[in-house]
């Protein structure tokens, strides 16, 4: 990260949730895979979709739309899982689509307008940056990727295991 900071730009993997664009620093992204339904984990926090098999490793998948926007997203064929490396190991982030890597000059990064922030997103948004026609919401990886304590903080609600 120091490297990119001194050279004045940072690279983000761009993805969409609904009609909004988000960016996650590329050094936290391990790979992007096609979306697949996860095995639900009973009694897990509601933003956790479950677990999937990533080449023999079992990793959790978090519904980012539910986490950031408060509602589950509908799966289209373009849906992807971004495999990101957080402090509690690999985590899959379910998103509507993910395709590009954007190089954003540090000078282009603006603080997120306070009026749009909610209690849930206050910590998570690092800032916003214009990228072509789009406005990209940049995520703070340390906050956006669930940490081990996250399970404690969240409400212990039902996942649809009982259907």
């Amino acid at each position: 990260m120091e490297d990119t900071a001194t050279t004045g730009y940072r690279q983000y993997v761009l993805f969409r949730l609904g009609d909004e664009d988000y960016g996650l620093p590329i050094e936290h992204v391990q790979s992007i895979i096609r979306y697949e339904p996860a095995t639900p984990v009973p009694h897990a926090p509601d933003a956790v979709e479950g677990v999937i098999n990533l080449r023999g490793q079992v990793i959790p998948v978090v519904d980012l739309a539910r986490r950031l926007r408060g509602r589950a997203l509908e799966r289209s064929p373009s849906a992807r899982i971004i495999v990101a490396e957080g402090e509690s190991g690999l985590v899959g982030l379910a998103v509507d689509s993910a395709s590009e890597v954007a190089t954003v000059p540090l000078t282009d990064i603006q603080p997120a307008p306070e009026s749009v922030l909610t209690e849930d997103t206050l910590d998570v948004f690092e800032g916003v940056a214009g990228y072509g026609e789009r406005l990209v919401i940049l995520l703070d990886p340390a906050k956006a990727l669930p940490a081990a304590t996250y399970a404690l903080k969240s409400r212990d609600e039902e996942v649809d295991a009982d259907v």
Partner: peptide, 8 residues
Amino acid sequence: LSPLFRNL
């Protein structure tokens, strides 16, 4: 299982 599920 991921440490995320530690409390389950």
